[in-house]
């Protein structure tokens, strides 16, 4: 069997687990229309946020989805109270998943080691300020690592020999990449 067919079957079976969980809780609570409203709002509104939380493990994601839907279906108000509250529940789930992903990205960004070879100009300037480099060194760092100016050109501008430029670049790189 082609792997694409196997993949479709895999998708159907994993979505099937989530749908079965949703169906079971809809039947148990008798909230059929509310569950449909919650599901549609959850699926459509999450695209408004651009990103959403995903666990590293796909199976953990499936488990979390089942758990969240179970809790949401159990606690959302009956359609007699307000059908719109089901939409709001979907929106709240989407918003929390978005905020968590945002927080997760921030933590990852903070823990990422600084690298002069892969950083952007804004990141480099911020790093220079962080380690209190002089304005001259900051400008040089931009020339070395962002503009990639030739050593010979810099040697001409600073009126020093190319070897001194190489040493300075090496020292700057070490200082910038060093973990604080």
């Amino acid at each position: 069997m082609n792997w694409r067919v196997k993949f479709r079957l895999f998708q159907v079976s994993t979505y099937g687990i989530v749908f079965a969980d949703i169906a079971v809780f809809a039947v148990l609570t008798g909230k059929y229309i509310e569950t449909v409203a919650l599901f549609i709002s959850f699926v459509t509104l999450r695209y408004a946020f651009g990103k959403t939380y995903h666990s590293q493990s796909f199976w953990w994601c499936i488990f979390i989805s089942c758990l969240i839907f179970a809790i949401a279906i159990t606690f959302m108000p009956n359609k007699g109270v307000s059908i719109l509250s089901c939409v709001a529940f979907g929106l709240i789930i989407d918003y929390l998943a978005y905020k968590y992903k945002d927080y997760d990205d921030l933590i990852r960004q903070r823990n990422k080691p600084f690298n002069v070879d892969t950083c952007t100009q804004a990141e480099l300037i911020s790093r220079c300020d962080e380690i209190h480099l002089s304005e001259e060194n900051k400008k040089l760092a931009i020339e070395f690592f962002i503009k990639k100016t030739k050593h010979s050109e810099l040697a001409d501008i600073l009126c020093i020999d190319e070897k001194s430029i190489t040493v300075r670049k090496h020292r700057l790189k070490q200082k910038l990449n060093k973990k604080i």
Binding site: K6, F7, Q11, T14, Y47, A48, G50, K51, H54, F58
Partner: peptide, 27 residues
């Protein structure tokens, strides 16, 4: 757009999980 990014990041997660179930090196 935003839809495409979410759709494809989910597709990657699914493919990664699916890959773990495969045994054939070619697949």
């Amino acid at each position: 757009g935003k839809w495409g990014f979410l759709f494809f990041s989910e597709k990657i997660a699914q493919l990664e999980a699916f890959k773990e179930t495969l045994k054939d090196a070619d697949e």
